[in-house]
Structures are given as structure tokens and as C-alpha cells.
Design a protein around this nucleic acid. Sequence first.
DNA 1: GCGACAG
DNA 2: ATCTTGTCGC
Length: 234
Amino acid sequence: MEIVDIAGLRAQQIATAGNVIRHDAFDFQTPSIIAGADVGFEQGGEVTRAAIALLRFPSLELIEYQVARINTTMPYIPGFLSFREYPALLAAWQRLSQQPDLVFVDGHGISHPRRLGVASHFGLLIDRPTIGVAKRRLCGRFEPLSDEPDARAPLIDKGEQVAWVWRSKLRCNPLFISTGHRVGLDSALHWVRRCMRGYRLPEPTRWADAVASNRMAFQRWRQGQESPDLFNPQ
DNA sequence: GCGACAG
DNA sequence: ATCTTGTCGC
């Protein structure tokens, strides 16, 4: 892990954030393929592992996944997550045999102090519609949600709405759904809502998380798929 | 000055 | 994020 110039990265974020497109700017009426993207770590954090899972829409069946491992270059610093994670995400992205119409990224999009969370930064780099799906707040404030499933409240930061705080499931903490790139806030929530299957997280995110973190659920699934070396292809 | 702080 | 099984509560 190298030394990082935080002031330089901050300047880069401010300069780059202006390129993020916050409204719907895509060709599809309904997406055919939606991806989930997530990052995990190995060997005490020395190795970064990114996973991207491709799901058919609206059936939400897994059709492909790719994993990439690279040496970790940066420590985790709140507000600078994208610089730590995007290199591995790009590596996994380049391994895909086909490109998805929409990508759900684990983490925030514009709901970031300088409006450039990992979902927005990665979206700009691949120039694809992306949505940020985060489990915890990074910035902004919101009114308490009712207990009802589907309850929502705007996340407000510096006077503007930067995300939807949304209760995806009864008795579960809400998710933070934000524009990544080329997807408006309301559309972002719309597509996430259409990818739910009874869990707190949408299916693309669940699969990406399971693959990136090598969850036992994923290992069991691999067992049933009898494809032993898909996970260690390099 | 103090607290907050994605993964 | 990661180390990790069972366990308490709805």
C-alpha cells in the first residue's frame, strides 16, 4: 500500500463530480441484464477482490459472474472509498462476456460529501447507468422512517436530495439508494424495487456480495453447479 | 474544538 | 471490509 495524497484526491473528486449525469440517460425501456458489483478483501486486506454478477431481468436468474483480484493500493478512508475499490471493479468488468444495461454498486453514488461515491465514480469510468445501494449513511440527514415496509424518506445534504432512504423489508434497517450515473433518483429506487426477492438487499447486490465475500451460500450454489474452477480462473 | 465517518 | 457460532427476538 502506497502513500496517498488526500488533498489531491479531493481535488480530483471535485473536478470529476461535475461529469456525473443525474438523470435517466439510457436507451432501454426495460433492462435485459442487471449487474451487481461488490468488493471484498483477502489476506488481511492485502488483496482486493471484486465481483460482478449478471442477472437476467425480470427473472433475476444468475447468468454470469466474474471475479478479479489485485493488490490493495490504498487503505479505507471514509469519503475516498472509490479510489480503493475501482481498480479491482474495472478488472472484473473487463472480464465480462457481455455488458449489462444497469449496474448496482455496493456503496453510495451522489450521496457523498463531494458527490462522487464509488457508484458514481465507477459509473463514469465505464460510462454505464449505475445505482448506489448502500447499507449505511455517509452524509446528509433524514427524518425517521415509519416501520412499514416500503417506507421512504429523502436523504438531504447541503440543501439537496442526494438519495432515498428506503425500508426494503419489515424490521430491517433501511437502504440508501442513490444516483450513480445516468439514472435519476426516482428511477434508481424504481429499478431496485423491481429486483427484490424477499431479502433486505436486491438480488444483483446479494449475488455480488456472496461472490465477492465467498459466502457459504455461494459455495453451496457452486457445489450444485458442478463448475469447480469458475472461482479461481486466473 | 468535537463528533461523524460508504466498505 | 474482516475475524466467526450460536443465540435472542419478532
